[in-house]
């Protein structure tokens, strides 16, 4: 990945996340933060994949970062957490694989389609599991704060 590609991908991810926030009518104050969290999640995913970690681990770490970062900003800005993690999740959606699956099913190439179906299921599962892990981090942090008081 060259520097230009990296810049284009980063700007694209940020723009798309903010724009999706507008489509689900997120308060103006939360748009920029949502975009930054989306960018963070996507970059973690991208670098994990580039470093040879595979797309499952990449999505898991990306989703986990989104979950943890959303809660931090939700606490800081006193806003509901879903305002940040719904748009931030959009760049991780397996759009390409889902499309290839549909296309191959439509064209009758079921073997290829099933390969993509399994990829879609794996990605969706790893995103869900990433959220679970982020919840774990958040609960541990809450417990820690309560004990310090």
């Amino acid at each position: 990945m060259t520097i230009t590609e990296f810049l284009i991908e980063s700007i694209g991810t940020y723009t798309a996340t903010v724009a999706f926030g507008i489509l689900v009518n997120i308060p103006r104050k939360a748009l920029n933060t949502g975009g930054l969290i989306g960018l963070l999640g996507y970059l973690i995913y991208r670098f994990t994949v580039l470093g040879g970690g595979g797309y499952v681990v990449g999505n898991l770490l990306g989703a986990m970062a989104i979950g943890v970062a959303s809660l931090q900003f939700a606490r800081m800005k006193r806003m509901p957490m879903i305002l940040f993690n719904i748009p931030a999740l959009v760049p991780l959606v397996p759009g390409g694989q889902a499309y290839q699956m549909i296309k191959n099913f439509a064209l009758g190439q079921n073997t290829v389609a099933f390969t993509y179906l399994i990829q879609v299921i794996m990605i969706a599962g790893s995103i869900a599991f990433g959220f679970l892990l982020s919840e774990l981090v958040n609960r541990v942090q809450q417990r820690f704060w309560q004990q310090r008081r």
Binding site: E5, I8, E9, I11, G12, T13, T15, A16, V18, A19, F20, I22, L23, Y42, V90, P91, G95, G96
Partner: peptide
């Protein structure tokens, strides 16, 4: 603005996912 936002979701994500400028 919603139309504009829809355009800005589609285009950039196409480039991000498929690298097809």
């Amino acid at each position: 603005l919603q139309l504009f936002a829809a355009a800005l979701v589609s285009g950039p994500l196409e480039v991000v996912f498929r690298h097809n400028l």
